[in-house]
Design a protein around this nucleic acid. Sequence first.
DNA 1: ATGAAATGATACCAGCCAGTATCATTCATA
DNA 2: TATGAATGATACTGGCTGGTATCATTTCAT
Lengths: 220, 220
Amino acid sequence: MPPVAPEGAARSTARRPSDRRTGRGQATCERLRRVAACLFVARGYDGVSLDEIVQAAGGSKTNIYAFYGGKEGLFVAAIEDALGEVLRPLTGADTRGLALEEGLTRLGRALLDALLTPEALALHRMLIGETGRFPRLGAAWYAAGPATSQAAFAGFLARALAGRPEAAEIGLLARLFHDMVAGDLQHRALFEPVPAGEAERAASVAAAVRAVKALTARGG
Amino acid sequence: MPPVAPEGAARSTARRPSDRRTGRGQATCERLRRVAACLFVARGYDGVSLDEIVQAAGGSKTNIYAFYGGKEGLFVAAIEDALGEVLRPLTGADTRGLALEEGLTRLGRALLDALLTPEALALHRMLIGETGRFPRLGAAWYAAGPATSQAAFAGFLARALAGRPEAAEIGLLARLFHDMVAGDLQHRALFEPVPAGEAERAASVAAAVRAVKALTARGG
DNA sequence: ATGAAATGATACCAGCCAGTATCATTCATA
DNA sequence: TATGAATGATACTGGCTGGTATCATTTCAT
């Protein structure tokens, strides 16, 4: 039997988060996060047990409590990783020097292809379901997803339109373009097994581009 | 001990769905469905236990197996009810004889108010999460929600524009209008605790209406 | 090298849950 | 009113889960 713990010290034998960490420990820690992200994204928080994660990743439940404090901590860490991973392509398109139509088409298509990825859809689905329990993750998704891509659209529009509309109009245009490109296809993809194919994506982007051109042809 | 069941008959004492149903039974059956809908919508399939439903609704687990065959059956029945309930306002707006701007504004606002209801948002969230397990329900939601309201928009546009654009363009316009009105506000509402207020709703509808007017001013 | 700390494997606990069984009670109907 | 079916209450089963405890093994700083 261990000696009685001094006043204020941990009274149980629960493992405290380690300060020093072994190389092996670091590897296990990352493996756990990667595997957990995959499982959590596919089946949600309640749908995955710690035993399953451990069995797939190696290590042991002890690690989860030592590294992440518990199931919730592992979940948050894993999903924050996945967020950055899935939405990275949103910021990748290079539109310097492109004209309005060409640039919007490229940006819109990049958005659509990123959002309709199976990984992005699964993550989106899961986050919507868990927003009640983990509000911070939902906010992070919105910030990294729609907010980011709308900002990218706005930046391009400001350049391409060379200040013709007022700044406030630019933001609105960007939002409308975003919704016209992605709204319906993403919505349907969340409920159907097979996301829209090449033809539908191109048509959706083309329609949105035509709309923006019509909206900017006169004063707005 | 019951006599040995004849060949092919139910071998266990599990209660078969009843053919005759008592008045009390009918009442319990409906109470179970109502209460279950409320709980399932709020917390999802796994988040609600049969014992909890029974405790809140009265009756007993026996009823659930007799009336609905099990948890899944009760879930599907309850959610199908809720679908019809929540999306009913979508079809309520009367736009006969209204001009383009006035009619679109009224329809758009009706859509937005229906979609941003706490009940609709909770149902939407939950359905997205359970689509993997219950694909039929997701399809039913899309059909009763976006598809229905897009059809309503298309019907009005066809009347208000008096056949000016071709039919194919009408459908596209309706979809774009739907997405411009609801896309961003609904998306945000799914992740934020408080949905958009009066000012934002009016602004979103107004922007979408202006866009449609601009798109139809010339040939489309 | 060596010993304290980090890590791994495993068993365990308490609680929850879907589904079933059993028996008491209530209802519809003849 | 009498009777058989429908309904209600309750307990049980088998399985799973998050979290903890225990002890063996590995790592790494000294």
